[in-house]
């Protein structure tokens, strides 16, 4: 019994440690290079966290979707749509709390539509969200009249939306902007939801074996609907963060962001066939991508080099994961 509890504790510890290994490897690489004195400062890490916020929020929703066996390709477009809607609201003089609500709800609405189509008409998520990717992008451009929605001319740089993700001290780690704290808080909530809640258990069951889940009395189609809607809320919130960071609503921004988010989730150990993945892993995955980008910039590598490196890291991460799993499977007998 003693040995058993030890084993279980070790397993729990491993689950927490494993996602960090990749991050340490990446950090280790930059630590021995000539940019370490810039990278390992409080100010840089402040910037790193601020830059991770959008991908991290998107990854929270995406992790849930991917664990449930689905995919959401509309994330990037929804982020753009949400930021445009937010900027328009500000221009219309909508009060600050309502701006936040509008951004989040726009995301939730697109997610709910995705979910309704996937659950109600049983269309595969790839197709539905591919369609929504185009629709959300088009609507964003339409609302914005094909140009960026700039509210600084009217309100200057003082609008409270800006303060959500604004860096106030460029020399120290603290204070972190409220957006970073909110992201960290939501990450903890989502970790609890996925690991400890009935909903989370159902998401894992659904992604691993939908048939069994249904026969166990889980309302599979309702759960799917909820999963995409909640993911949409996260994308909407990410759009608000984008708005705060860019200080304008840009309908052409965040192109390809969905792939970056999916990459973060996959680097974090999720399987695209569903049933496995973790919020913590995805958060680390998001951080790895941002560290790689910033590190490459500091090293003076050009954009195309960054893209190649991130591509290699994605493939490498999945290979390592696969290797680990095949090792596990070999232990089974009969």
């Amino acid at each position: 019994m003693n040995k058993l509890t030890q084993m279980m504790q070790w397993k729990a510890v491993r689950q927490v440690i494993e996602p960090f290994i990749g991050l340490f490897v990446v950090l280790g690489f930059f630590a021995v290079s000539d940019v370490s004195h810039i990278l390992f400062t409080g100010s840089t890490w402040n910037l790193l966290l601020v830059q991770t916020v959008v991908v991290a929020l998107g990854a929270m929703g995406m992790t849930m979707v991917i664990i449930s066996g689905g995919i959401d390709l509309s994330a990037g477009s929804v982020v753009a749509l949400s930021s445009v809607v937010g900027a328009k609201c500000i221009l219309l003089g909508v009060p600050f709390p309502l701006v936040i609500l509008c951004c989040v709800l726009v995301g939730g609405l697109t997610g709910a539509i995705n979910g309704a189509l996937i659950a109600g008409l049983r269309i595969v998520p790839f197709i539905v969200t591919l369609g929504m990717m185009g629709i959300a992008r088009g609507v964003a451009k339409w609302i914005a009249n094909n140009q960026t929605v700039n509210y600084t001319a009217k309100y200057g740089n003082e609008h409270p939306v800006r303060s959500i993700l604004e860096r106030t001290d460029f020399r120290h780690f603290f204070p972190l902007p409220p957006g970073v704290w909110l992201t960290a808080f939501l990450a903890i909530v989502m970790i609890l939801v996925m690991r400890r809640s009935v909903f989370g258990r159902h998401v894992f069951a659904l992604g691993s074996n939908e048939d069994t889940a249904r026969l166990c009395g889980i309302r599979v189609q309702w759960k799917k609907m909820a999963i995409y809607a909640i993911a949409g809320l996260f994308f909407g919130l990410a759009g608000l963060m984008q708005l705060s960071r860019l200080n304008l609503g840009d309908p052409t921004a965040s192109v390809g962001l969905e792939l970056e988010i999916i990459a973060a989730v996959v680097i974090g150990g999720a399987s695209l066939s569903g049933g496995s993945g973790s919020i913590l892993g995805s958060m680390i995955g998001a951080l790895i991508i941002v560290v790689l980008k910033l590190g490459s910039t500091l090293k003076g590598w050009e954009n195309h080099i960054q893209e190649i490196i991130i591509g290699v890291v994605i493939i490498f991460a999945v290979c390592v994961d696969r290797f680990r799993h095949s090792g596990l499977l070999k232990r089974s007998r009969d």
Binding site: R201, F204, A205, S208, N209, D211, T212, A213, G275, S276
Partner: peptide, 9 residues
């Protein structure tokens, strides 16, 4: 395997 258990859990 297909309907009784969720093998991933």
């Amino acid at each position: 395997k297909a309907q009784g258990l969720v093998l991933g859990l």
